[in-house]
Nucleic acid binder design. Structure first.
Lengths: 152, 152
DNA sequence: TTATTTTTGATACAAAGTAGCAAAACGAAA
DNA sequence: TTTCGTTTTGCTACTTTGTATCAAAAATAA
């Protein structure tokens, strides 16, 4: 099986799982919301909101930015998508939600490429630091910039 | 000694250290740069760029945003200031630069209040996670949202 | 001093995100 | 299935955040 086909399959997995998650939580994965999610999945990386506007607009119909932002808000609330604040962009969240793990989104400083890693060890260490700081709870998501090993 | 006086003293410490650091690294802490830094120090928390524009502008002379951004870029490069991407704001970096520690800026989701904590434990755990992700190096700074214990 | 680099000022612009309100679609209840 | 309330979408305009460009001024080096 080609890597192309594998990727296609992975895309469908994500879509199906998103669908299930929404069904189970009584959330409505409406057409635009699904289109936005699908576009993010297919892109394979972070995409800017206005880029999504362009990609999901046709010649006949130009979507308003607010439409995309609303879809993104929904997807973020559902935990399906992360916002990369340092990049002003949005990216699909991978991996099953493990409550005890920290979701770390590593962002390559050069290319903007991202890789998501879940770590309970980091979660534990951050919780400890948070306690020191007088924080009672912390977001299970964080973003770290760094340099990806280039395998050219 | 009043807490007010203590704070004033701390401010002067920071200013002096910034001055030293720049001198030692052949960086020019020019008047606007120092004014921006001082304003951030005095505010005691994160401040937006356009807020700085307002605060540092007089009736006679209105600073251009780009002037502030340039000063902020300088201060960030020097490691004196952090940008809080999730808040679109800028905050003074505290603590002596410990190369092995992760600088974690905890941001209160409600108020935007920040507390900086340095942790070698987090740094170590993140490094390990980064290796898994195929990253060879990571930024020594990160931002985590959470909820501060309210001691009303 | 003169030449070179760095910093600042000024104008305009680009990019990212939001407010507010009306129309449409949906879902539940009668 | 019609009515009613809620959620979602469309539309227009707007706010906030951040940059590009190029000339003037200031600092540094030769």
């Amino acid at each position: 099986m080609s890597t192309r086909a594998v990727r296609k399959e992975e895309e469908e997995n994500l879509l199906r799982r998103a669908d299930d998650l929404c069904r189970q939580n009584n959330l409505r994965l409406t057409p635009i919301r699904e289109r936005v999610y699908r576009e993010l999945v297919q892109s394979g990386g972070p995409v800017g909101a206005y880029d999504l506007v362009d990609r999901l607009s046709s010649d006949k119909k130009r979507l308003a930015p607010v439409t995309i932002y609303r879809a993104l808000d929904f997807l973020r609330d559902a935990g399906l998508v992360h916002r990369l604040a340092t990049q002003n962009s949005y990216v699909v969240s991978h991996g099953q939600p493990d409550v005890n793990a920290m979701k770390i989104m590593f962002v390559d400083s050069k290319t903007g490429e991202t890789i998501e890693v879940h770590s309970t060890e980091v979660a534990e260490a951050v919780r400890k630091a948070a306690e020191q700081a007088g924080f009672k709870s912390v977001s299970p998501f964080m973003e770290v910039e760094g340099e990806l090993n280039r395998q050219s």
